[in-house]
């Protein structure tokens, strides 16, 4: 069955097998950052972003993903130009064996897209479907916090013009020091 997928911004026409999962299809297409873990939606190694939402690609029948937009970690950053979340993960030591990392990064990305300043609780909840067998959760949460701090849109501070009189008084005090 031919389906049309947009993967990392590129439209692809591909023949999907009837019982094939989106995970298997993406790996067959060469997106090997999408990992097979449990095959039953428990571990999050196969996380992809489908139409803006993080999902377990092992639970999605490939034929039902027709006309959907898929984002894998390959579409987020490159080795030369990594995404701020990827950089933050490296700096926080959030990568051990690395098997869960693509899924973790994508879940973190989805969280920061909708909540640029998440609490630790929100981070933990957003990553609750991604298991790290190396149990490096502390560093992973730290990595997301670090990325959030860097990606947070800077607030536009409009300098209020102080009344002329007050300005003079302030400068006057400064002068006395």
């Amino acid at each position: 069955m031919e389906i049309v997928l947009t993967v990392n911004g590129e439209e692809k026409r591909i023949e999907a097998r009837p019982a094939e999962t989106l995970l298997d299809l993406l790996r067959r297409m060469g997106y090997c950052s999408v990992k097979f873990g449990c095959g039953e939606g428990a571990c999050g190694s196969c996380t992809v972003i489908m139409d803006g939402r993080p999902v377990n690609s092992c639970l999605v029948l490939a034929v039902t993903a027709d006309r959907r937009e898929i984002l894998t970690v390959d579409g987020l950053g490159t080795r030369q130009r990594p995404h701020p979340i990827q950089t933050a993960f490296v700096e926080a030591g959030a990568v051990q064996c690395g098997y869960c990392t693509p899924g973790m990064v994508l879940s973190a990305w989805a969280l920061l897209e909708r909540d640029p300043d998440p609490s630790e609780e929100a981070i933990r909840e957003a990553l609750d479907g991604n298991l790290c067998r190396c149990t490096g959760y502390v560093q992973i949460v730290e990595g997301v916090k670090l990325a959030a701090g860097r990606m947070k849109p800077k607030k536009k501070t409009t300098k209020k013009k102080k009344p002329a009189g007050k300005k003079k008084a302030a400068s006057g005090k400064k002068g006395k020091k």
Binding site: G41, G44, M50, P54, S107, E125, D128, G129
Partner: peptide, 9 residues
């Protein structure tokens, strides 16, 4: 229900 990833499906 399930995890964040499951709840989206």
């Amino acid at each position: 229900i399930g995890s964040t990833l499951n709840r989206n499906l």
